[in-house]
Protein backbone atom coordinates (compact mmCIF):
# COMPACT_ATOMS: atom_id res chain seq x y z
CA UNK A 1 0.00 0.00 0.00
CA UNK A 2 2.77 2.40 0.98
CA UNK A 3 4.79 1.32 -2.06
CA UNK A 4 1.99 2.21 -4.46
CA UNK A 5 1.52 5.64 -2.90
CA UNK A 6 5.27 6.32 -2.98
CA UNK A 7 5.45 5.40 -6.68
CA UNK A 8 2.54 7.68 -7.51
CA UNK A 9 4.18 10.49 -5.58
CA UNK A 10 7.49 10.06 -7.39
CA UNK A 11 5.76 10.04 -10.76
CA UNK A 12 3.86 13.17 -9.74
CA UNK A 13 7.15 14.86 -8.83
CA UNK A 14 8.54 14.29 -12.33
CA UNK A 15 5.78 16.42 -13.81
CA UNK A 16 7.74 19.46 -12.69
CA UNK A 17 11.08 18.37 -14.21
CA UNK A 18 12.53 19.66 -17.51
CA UNK A 19 11.81 17.35 -20.43
CA UNK A 20 14.88 15.45 -21.80
CA UNK A 21 13.15 13.43 -24.51
CA UNK A 22 13.55 15.05 -27.88
CA UNK A 23 10.82 14.74 -30.44
CA UNK A 24 13.12 13.27 -33.07
CA UNK A 25 12.86 13.45 -36.08
CA UNK A 26 10.61 16.53 -35.84
CA UNK A 27 13.12 18.12 -33.50
CA UNK A 28 16.79 17.72 -34.50
CA UNK A 29 19.29 17.25 -31.66
CA UNK A 30 22.05 19.86 -31.49
CA UNK A 31 25.28 17.86 -31.81
CA UNK A 32 28.72 19.33 -31.13
CA UNK A 33 31.17 19.44 -34.07
CA UNK A 34 33.33 16.83 -32.38
CA UNK A 35 30.50 14.33 -32.22
CA UNK A 36 31.64 10.95 -33.57
CA UNK A 37 29.24 10.02 -36.33
CA UNK A 38 29.54 9.07 -39.98
CA UNK A 39 33.13 8.92 -41.22
CA UNK A 40 34.21 10.99 -44.21
CA UNK A 41 37.39 11.44 -46.22
CA UNK A 42 38.33 15.07 -46.74
CA UNK A 43 40.34 16.92 -49.36
CA UNK A 44 43.30 19.21 -48.89
CA UNK A 45 43.06 22.97 -49.54
CA UNK A 46 44.00 22.34 -53.17
CA UNK A 47 41.00 20.10 -53.60
CA UNK A 48 42.99 16.86 -53.90
CA UNK A 49 42.45 13.75 -51.83
CA UNK A 50 44.05 14.04 -48.44
CA UNK A 51 44.23 10.31 -47.82
CA UNK A 52 47.71 8.98 -48.59
CA UNK A 53 46.81 5.30 -48.05
CA UNK A 54 49.20 4.94 -45.15
CA UNK A 55 46.97 2.27 -43.59
CA UNK A 56 47.21 3.70 -40.07
CA UNK A 57 43.42 4.09 -39.71
CA UNK A 58 42.96 0.48 -40.78
CA UNK A 59 45.45 -0.83 -38.25
CA UNK A 60 44.09 1.41 -35.48
CA UNK A 61 40.52 0.22 -36.04
CA UNK A 62 39.61 -2.13 -33.19
CA UNK A 63 36.90 -3.87 -35.22
CA UNK A 64 38.97 -4.03 -38.43
CA UNK A 65 36.22 -2.39 -40.47
CA UNK A 66 38.50 -0.24 -42.66
CA UNK A 67 40.29 -1.69 -45.65
CA UNK A 68 42.21 0.04 -48.41
CA UNK A 69 44.87 -0.50 -51.04
CA UNK A 70 47.64 1.92 -51.80
CA UNK A 71 48.15 3.25 -55.34
CA UNK A 72 50.52 5.90 -56.57
CA UNK A 73 50.51 8.62 -59.20
CA UNK A 74 53.41 11.02 -59.82
CA UNK A 75 54.77 10.48 -56.33
CA UNK A 76 51.42 11.02 -54.57
CA UNK A 77 50.00 8.07 -52.73
CA UNK A 78 46.25 7.62 -52.71
CA UNK A 79 43.88 4.75 -51.97
CA UNK A 80 42.90 2.63 -54.96
CA UNK A 81 39.85 1.63 -52.96
CA UNK A 82 38.87 2.71 -49.48
CA UNK A 83 36.14 0.72 -47.81
CA UNK A 84 34.47 1.11 -44.45
CA UNK A 85 32.04 -1.51 -43.30
CA UNK A 86 29.76 0.65 -41.17
CA UNK A 87 27.81 -2.38 -40.05
CA UNK A 88 30.89 -3.14 -37.95
CA UNK A 89 32.02 0.40 -37.10
CA UNK A 90 31.77 1.35 -33.42
CA UNK A 91 32.46 5.05 -34.02
CA UNK A 92 35.34 5.10 -31.57
CA UNK A 93 37.26 7.69 -33.56
CA UNK A 94 40.60 5.89 -33.34
CA UNK A 95 40.95 6.17 -37.12
CA UNK A 96 40.71 9.94 -36.92
CA UNK A 97 43.29 10.03 -34.15
CA UNK A 98 45.65 7.81 -36.14
CA UNK A 99 45.37 9.76 -39.37
CA UNK A 100 48.57 11.70 -40.02
CA UNK A 101 47.01 13.85 -42.74
CA UNK A 102 43.60 14.81 -41.23
CA UNK A 103 42.01 12.92 -44.11
CA UNK A 104 39.64 10.69 -42.19
CA UNK A 105 37.24 12.60 -39.95
CA UNK A 106 34.13 11.76 -37.97
CA UNK A 107 31.14 14.00 -38.49
CA UNK A 108 28.00 14.75 -36.44
CA UNK A 109 25.83 12.79 -38.85
CA UNK A 110 24.45 9.61 -37.37
CA UNK A 111 21.45 9.00 -39.65
CA UNK A 112 22.73 6.00 -41.56
CA UNK A 113 20.23 3.25 -40.79
CA UNK A 114 19.66 0.71 -43.55
CA UNK A 115 17.45 -2.34 -43.96
CA UNK A 116 20.22 -4.45 -45.56
CA UNK A 117 23.73 -4.72 -44.23
CA UNK A 118 25.56 -4.51 -47.59
CA UNK A 119 24.21 -0.96 -47.93
CA UNK A 120 26.34 -0.04 -44.94
CA UNK A 121 29.54 -0.83 -46.85
CA UNK A 122 30.81 2.56 -47.96
CA UNK A 123 33.38 2.85 -50.75
CA UNK A 124 35.70 5.77 -51.38
CA UNK A 125 33.14 7.51 -53.62
CA UNK A 126 30.65 7.42 -50.72
CA UNK A 127 33.17 8.68 -48.17
CA UNK A 128 34.97 11.43 -50.03
CA UNK A 129 33.63 14.95 -49.49
CA UNK A 130 34.60 17.99 -51.48
CA UNK A 131 35.89 20.11 -48.59
CA UNK A 132 38.58 20.11 -45.96
CA UNK A 133 36.37 19.22 -43.02
CA UNK A 134 37.50 20.35 -39.57
CA UNK A 135 41.03 21.33 -40.60
CA UNK A 136 40.87 23.93 -43.34
CA UNK A 137 44.58 24.70 -43.75
CA UNK A 138 46.57 21.49 -43.48
CA UNK A 139 48.13 19.90 -46.52
CA UNK A 140 50.38 16.93 -45.89
CA UNK A 141 52.38 17.25 -49.08
CA UNK A 142 53.39 20.84 -48.23
CA UNK A 143 55.22 19.42 -45.21
CA UNK A 144 56.41 16.11 -46.61
CA UNK A 145 59.69 15.75 -48.48
CA UNK A 146 58.42 13.79 -51.46
CA UNK A 147 58.28 15.40 -54.85
CA UNK A 148 54.83 15.78 -56.45
CA UNK A 149 53.63 17.73 -59.47
CA UNK A 150 53.74 21.40 -58.62
CA UNK A 151 56.09 20.94 -55.67
CA UNK A 152 59.68 20.18 -56.50
CA UNK A 153 62.30 18.92 -54.10
CA UNK A 154 63.22 21.66 -51.67
CA UNK A 155 59.92 23.51 -52.05
CA UNK A 156 58.16 22.07 -49.03
CA UNK A 157 57.98 23.95 -45.73
CA UNK A 158 61.36 24.37 -44.04
CA UNK A 159 63.37 22.83 -46.84
CA UNK A 160 66.62 23.89 -48.44
CA UNK A 161 67.03 23.69 -52.20
CA UNK A 162 68.36 20.30 -53.37
CA UNK A 163 72.04 19.65 -52.82
CA UNK A 164 74.47 19.78 -55.72
CA UNK A 165 76.16 16.43 -55.13
CA UNK A 166 79.06 17.25 -57.37
CA UNK A 167 80.17 20.16 -55.22
CA UNK A 168 82.63 19.60 -52.39
CA UNK A 169 82.19 23.10 -50.95
CA UNK A 170 81.23 23.14 -47.29
Amino acid sequence: MFGILRTLWLTFLHMGHRRVTVGYPETRPALPPRYRGRIILSRDPDGLERCVACNLCAVACPVDCISLQKAEQDGRWYPEYFRINFSRCIFCGFCEEACPTYAIQLTPDFEMSEYVRPNLVYEKEDLLISGTGKYPDYSFYRVSGVEIPGKDKGEAEREQPPVDVRSLLP
Binding site: D64, S67, R83, I84, N85, V121, E123
Partner: peptide, 13 residues
Protein backbone atom coordinates in the same frame (compact mmCIF):
# COMPACT_ATOMS: atom_id res chain seq x y z
CA UNK B 1 46.36 -7.59 -39.51
CA UNK B 2 43.80 -4.96 -40.47
CA UNK B 3 40.52 -4.71 -42.33
CA UNK B 4 39.30 -8.25 -41.75
CA UNK B 5 35.65 -7.23 -41.66
CA UNK B 6 35.91 -4.87 -44.62
CA UNK B 7 38.31 -6.40 -47.08
CA UNK B 8 35.68 -8.62 -48.68
CA UNK B 9 32.67 -6.55 -47.65
CA UNK B 10 32.10 -5.38 -51.22
CA UNK B 11 31.42 -9.03 -52.13
CA UNK B 12 29.72 -10.19 -48.95
CA UNK B 13 29.42 -8.79 -45.45
Amino acid sequence: ISGRTAVRANISV
